[in-house]
Nucleic acid binder design. Structure first.
Lengths: 150, 150
DNA sequence: GCCGAGGTTTACGTTAACGTAAAGTGCTTG
DNA sequence: CAAGCACTTTACGTTAACGTAAACCTCGGC
């Protein structure tokens, strides 16, 4: 991904105990970092959400890959499907040389996601009120149980 | 949910062309009302999220059932599993005669859900910023395409 | 030289949340 | 009374998003 033509990525760059500028990650590192399994990461690649470089057979993830994974997981937490996430991600990548139709389509998708987020905000607000209510009642009952034994 | 002990729910109360106080619903009505299929509603019942009365074989839903369905669907939109939703719903129902342990457990669950919602709020905020960014770039590209034809 | 820690592919298994089809019941309407 | 419509049960099918197992490579260290 990283388009910036710089930094040819020195093979292992073992120049200190904690290299301050870590540019690549193994699949295992990413897995721990985000608390997912390597299977998940490979699956996301298979689904077209990631496309790490290879050193021989081994996958090498760079900073951009890491960000993508982060965004993907965030999307998942918000209930988006991998297909939806891929839609935005791919459009985004194709953007620089996209034609009008594609760009307008992208804007449509974005508006759609936005509307979705707005509804989720409202849902969260309502849900919080419900939880407030349930909790208040639960505490009341607990209090009324004040001196009984169980 | 609504526990208010009142209103014994008169069987059918057919007293007008458009009974202003509709207390019961058919499965089809609820399905249209919430834009889900009847299959979905029956499935939720099977999963212990609903328990409508029966008139013979037919399911009769009252106001409380309707609210439950609404809350269930809201939970779903927020990415909760049916199992999670059921957990809260069942605890809530068992509340009045719940013992301390159950009530504390309920409070735990609520705190958990709350934390979840908080993270979702943050995720939404971040996601909105991302969308802002993507949209801005897309508009820029579109503008730069100003006079080309496609 | 071999061993363990990580990486890889291939492929079948699993779970949640329904979809879909078949076959039957019950009312009411022309 | 036949047709139609809404409801019912039963049961197999489907999709997304991984889990899990087997069998393999490869590299640094003892």
């Amino acid at each position: 991904m990283t388009q910036p033509p710089s930094t040819p990525a020195p093979a292992i760059a073992q120049d200190g105990p904690l290299p301050r500028q870590r540019r690549t990650y193994s699949i295992g590192e990413l897995a721990k970092m985000f608390e997912v399994t390597t299977r998940t990461i490979r699956f996301y690649e298979q689904e077209g959400l990631l496309a790490p470089e290879r050193r021989g057979q081994t996958r090498i993830y760079n900073e951009k890959d890491r960000v993508r994974l982060k965004l993907t997981l965030r999307g998942k937490r918000l209930g988006f499907s991998l297909a939806e996430i891929r839609e935005v991600v791919m459009m985004y990548d194709a953007m620089p040389d996209g034609n009008r139709r594609q760009l307008r389509r992208l804007l449509e998708i974005l508006a759609d996601k936005r509307a979705n987020l707005e509804r989720q905000l409202e849902d969260i607000r309502l849900m919080q009120l419900e939880l407030d209510d349930v909790e208040r009642r639960a505490r009341d009952v607990l209090a009324s149980l004040g001196d009984q034994k169980d």
